[in-house]
């Protein structure tokens, strides 16, 4: 994907990362945590232009859970309000046992998509989410078995090598779909040069999604739009609308990036169009 796809006016897939698993309502009261809140947020995001919703599961007090049953409650709550949006489950989980990382794949029906973290990531001062190749392969195997499209989470340039390694080891359905992630810590440093380099290093034929954390969300989404990529926004990755002003909803962040896409001449993909683009 490149500037040529932008000029060609290819549709952009907007993903809304609704809740996450790191921060919660202690950071912003607008972040949905319960299945009902997530279901409502998904419907609002879809109405605003999101074709995909990326979800994590939480206990009633906001803390993480990887339980299939909780993901099922979330999916059911989403489907009561949004029949068509593509549901993408997170399989991420710093500190969680490998067995727990598989549980989000086991809802009925399985999610159409799920994240697949491509390598290690540091967190706080003493934690690393290891994401070994063994875990990546076992998660991918279950995704294939259950018909789930993997969204490769590329936290840094080294993970682009890991994606190429995964392609050597396993047969991934076309198109390969990866999210380029920019921000602090282990993430790729958020500079336009690094963004362009990452695009150059994507596997041949891959579709890319663009994720900037915090204040980098909007500029990197805009770069993604300009270079023919797809974009991810939402309160999981950024809780502010602008400096010092909390975003009031996931839909508000979706509306903004849809507005920019429209100004730039990128049509926003419907869920059906997104399924076609991603080969779901």
């Amino acid at each position: 994907m490149s500037y040529a796809e932008f000029l060609a006016g290819e549709p952009v897939i907007v993903t809304a990362a609704l809740t996450g698993g790191v921060h919660g309502k202690e950071t912003t009261p607008h972040l949905p945590e319960t299945p009902e809140e997530i279901g409502k947020a998904a419907a609002e995001a879809e109405a605003a232009g999101a074709a995909v919703v990326h979800v994590h599961a939480r206990q009633p007090n906001g803390e993480r859970t990887f339980a299939t049953e909780r993901f099922q409650e979330i999916d059911d709550a989403i489907r009561r309000r949004a029949e068509d949006v593509i549901i993408q489950h997170s399989t991420g989980g710093t500190g969680a046992p490998d067995a727990a990382r598989h549980l989000p794949l086991r809802t009925d029906p399985a999610p159409e998509m799920a994240s697949l973290d491509m390598g290690p990531l540091n967190r706080y001062d003493h934690l690393t989410s290891e994401n070994t190749r063994g875990l990546v392969d076992s998660l991918h195997a279950e995704m294939v078995e259950r018909g789930v499209k993997p969204e490769l989470e590329l936290f840094n340039d080294g993970h682009l090598n890991e994606a190429l390694g995964l392609l050597d080891r396993r047969d991934l359905a076309d198109p390969v779909y990866g999210t380029l992630i920019f921000g602090p810590g282990t993430l790729t440093p958020p500079t336009p040069r690094n963004f362009l380099t990452a695009i150059d290093n994507l596997p041949a034929g891959a579709q890319f999604n663009t994720l900037g954390f915090g204040r980098h969300q909007l500029p990197f989404a805009t770069m993604g739009l300009l270079f023919g990529g797809h974009v991810r926004v939402g309160l999981e990755d950024n809780v502010y609308y602008r400096q010092g002003e909390l975003a009031t909803s996931n839909a508000q962040l979706v509306e903004r990036v849809v507005r920019i896409a429209d100004e730039l001449g990128r049509p926003v993909a419907t869920p059906s169009q997104a399924r076609e683009i991603l080969g779901l």
């Binding site: 973290d117 967190r123 602090p184 994720l211 915090g214």
Partner: peptide, 12 residues
């Protein structure tokens, strides 16, 4: 600061 920084997270 990291704790409250918007989108400092991971496990995306």
């Amino acid at each position: 600061g990291d704790e409250n920084r918007a989108g400092s997270g991971e496990d995306a």
